[in-house]
């Protein structure tokens, strides 16, 4: 009796959920295992007391009181990538401060997006390691996809991918990185054995190659006439996870 009534109510949809369970409950009570009955009872109780709903709410409450993983970039923190990171390129110097690039144009040839322009010139004043240096060396950063093939192709390890990733700017001028911008500055870092340690995070950020990276470090957003820059503070560093 109850079976018939409830079945007409539920129709063929799964939706009238309490009644659906009830109808299952009343269906053929002959060959019923106790576990089935228990299952159904608990299901009905769950629906009545909104157990799943409360479970969901407690889960979200747990997240609400847990610590957030947000990095407060750029006001307070900033991610400093690992050394293997492929950011803005640098053109390096050797231990004597001479430019390593011999303008062989291998990087330009191998570049998949053809975004490097190299114009060689003769020079015997000792700027470079040989008598050939790059007159123009320009990377179009809009087209570069930071694949690192130029780095692999270079016979003199002149071009290396750095760790600067803050490349956004307000006009297209900064989209083309010229030699001046890419070349490691001559002096701020003491010359060491082999290749000079270049400021891998770009000219003025003051993070040397020896900094291993992979940290969230303190940071400060600075606005001035030159624009916006983010100054990292290496003394406050932590792994972010």
């Amino acid at each position: 009796m109850g079976k018939l009534h409830l079945n007409t109510l539920t129709g063929n949809r799964q939706t009238f959920f309490v009644a659906a369970n009830l109808s299952a409950f009343f269906k053929s009570p002959m060959n019923w295992q106790t576990t089935d009955r228990m299952q159904n009872m608990t299901n009905i109780l769950k629906k009545i007391f909104f157990i799943d709903f409360i479970k969901g709410l407690s889960l979200t409450l747990g997240y609400e009181v847990s610590k957030s993983v947000t990095m407060r970039y750029p006001d307070e923190e900033k991610w400093l990538p690992y050394q293997r990171f492929r950011g803005l390129h640098t053109l390096n110097r050797d231990a004597q401060g001479r430019e390593l690039c011999v303008a062989c144009e291998l990087c330009a040839k191998t570049c998949p997006t053809k975004c490097i322009t190299v114009v060689p010139m003769e020079d015997d004043t000792g700027i470079g390691i040989s008598d050939r240096i790059a007159k123009v060396y320009e990377i179009n950063l809009v087209r570069c996809m930071f694949c690192g093939l130029c780095e692999d192709a270079c016979p003199t390890t002149a071009i290396r991918m750095g760790r600067d990733y803050e490349l956004a700017c307000f006009s297209l001028d900064c989209a083309a990185a010229d030699k001046k911008r890419l070349l490691a500055p001559a002096h701020p870092f003491p010359f060491q054995e082999g290749i000079q340690k270049s400021p891998l995070l770009g000219g003025d950020k003051g993070v040397g190659q020896e900094f291993e990276g992979g940290y969230v470090v303190g940071a400060r957003l600075e606005r001035n006439k030159q624009g916006i820059s983010i100054k990292p503070d290496l003394t406050r560093k932590k792994r972010w996870w």
Binding site: T60, Y63, E64, V65, S66, S68, V69, T70, R72, D75
Partner: peptide, 14 residues
């Protein structure tokens, strides 16, 4: 803020 913290973010902060 509630949205942020439930999604383990911080919400508006700036």
């Amino acid at each position: 803020k509630v949205a942020g913290h439930i999604q383990v973010r911080l919400g508006p902060f700036r």
